[in-house]
């Protein structure tokens, strides 16, 4: 068995197990930490699939920035709020199990029809990555996908401004709303 497959079979169960453990975890902080484990495993897969630049981006952006943001908000909103996993809809669980099995079958047949389970490992990707993965990516990104790249920068600026506007404490607006509510006879 080649080394790549050994690494895959070590990290794939860890990734799936941490994802499932995150879903059944009541404590939000523990769930966030399990998600970080999952992100690191996915970063290893990027390395295996010939994408070392995405490996670095995954660790820095996801495991670093995004998860710190999540943990920050969880701490801000209080960590003692337990979440119940009890289902309220009648008959949801059997229906979910049945449909999940159907989906698994569908994935099985789709993969078998599309690429085949006997597909060989892809070869010759080193030629695409010639001169370094980051350099090759930059060549494609700035030649073929320059306009989407610039659109992404606009998107990020708009998102940053929107997050700031949404989360700032609008003292005047709140007192106005309270005055209106009091005028309608409601409890502000």
């Amino acid at each position: 068995m080649p080394l790549d497959n050994v690494v895959f079979w070590v990290f794939a169960p860890i990734a799936v197990a941490s994802a499932i453990a995150m879903l059944v975890q009541r404590n939000a902080v523990h769930a966030a930490l399990l998600l970080i484990v999952n992100f690191f495993c996915i970063a290893v897969f990027y390395l295996l699939l010939g994408a070392p630049f995405l490996f670095a981006v995954q660790v820095i952006v996801y495991a670093g920035a995004i998860m710190v943001l999540f943990l920050f908000v969880i701490m801000l909103l209080g960590v003692d709020r337990g979440d119940t996993l009890r289902e309220r809809l009648v008959g949801q669980r059997p229906a979910a199990i049945g449909l999940g099995l159907a989906l698994a079958l569908e994935v099985f047949f789709a993969v078998r029809a599309g690429v085949g389970f006997a597909a060989k490992a892809p070869v010759g990707f080193e030629k695409v990555n010639a001169g370094g993965n980051a350099q090759a990516l930059a060549r494609v990104l700035f030649r073929d996908y320059f306009f989407p790249f610039e659109a992404t920068s606009v998107l990020l600026i708009v998102a940053a401004i929107a997050a700031m506007v949404l989360a700032q404490r609008k003292a005047r607006a709140i007192t106005q709303a309270g005055a209106e509510a009091a005028g309608r006879g409601e409890v502000a």
């Binding site: 497959n5 690429v115 490992a121 990707f125």
Partner: peptide, 9 residues
């Protein structure tokens, strides 16, 4: 490299 079906599943 890993085989594609493994990645998809």
């Amino acid at each position: 490299m890993i085989r594609l079906p493994l990645v998809l599943v």
